[in-house]
Design a binder for these strands. Structure first.
Lengths: 114, 114
DNA sequence: TTGACATATGAACAATTGTTCATATGTTTG
DNA sequence: CAAACATATGAACAATTGTTCATATGTCAA
């Protein structure tokens, strides 16, 4: 009812805005990244891995949560190509997939500090 | 049980990682920003406002959702200092509070494109 | 003041999320 | 091969989230 087009107050601006909005696919890719970084434990994982390579139970110690919980979180980060891993015997080492993400969180740190 | 300290495999790395993790307050400030940007409609709002100032019902048209829903979302963005507003008569115009956020989403766009 | 309009907000409900627990997979060592 | 260990995963449950609906606030014009 109030989604009705007749109600738009500033047509040209709305049109300009609409042109600037990425398509649904891109939109969901971006929200995926942000959602991944919106959980304190996952963010801890990323901050930790920004410093050095760590295995699952190291990360569990860092986060103060269980191996299982961390493993679930790591899968999410893996699927989004935020982290990659390398197996060495029984141990699986995780690290950041690229430096984009550290840049991202550092930039957000700046925003927050003000 | 598996949070036990004895299980840590790489003590020095864990220590180094722990030193790199911001305190809880900073951590929650950052996750707050990311959480805000992790909703498709809020992200649309931010992309829209990156282009020009818009009122609530313009934004509703852009997002394809109700005025009320948009207003609720705008409060979240307002509380996080992501957007600011200006009243002109009956109409309230929103715009981005600073350019940090547009930088942030554009950077994420880059990450996603690869 | 009254009515119309733009926006804001509280309550409630459905959908999503993160954890735990149990169990499975994969790897090394005896 | 079996046992021990590191990690992964599915199901289920509690907590959080985004929307809708009803109503409230604030502003303008008559």
């Amino acid at each position: 009812m109030d989604v009705c087009q007749e109600k738009i107050l500033h047509h040209e601006s709305v049109q300009k805005a609409l042109n600037n909005i990425p398509d649904m696919d891109a939109l969901h890719s971006i929200t995926g990244i942000f959602k991944a970084l919106s959980d304190p434990n996952r963010l801890k994982i990323v901050f930790a891995l920004a410093k050095c390579e760590l295995c699952v139970c190291d990360l569990a110690a860092v986060c103060g949560s269980s191996d299982s919980a961390v493993s679930h979180q790591l899968r999410i980060l893996r699927n989004l190509k935020i982290v990659r891993y390398r197996r060495e015997g029984k141990v699986v080492f995780y690290r950041l997939d690229d430096h984009h993400v550290s840049t991202l969180i550092n930039q957000t740190l700046e925003h927050v500090k003000e």
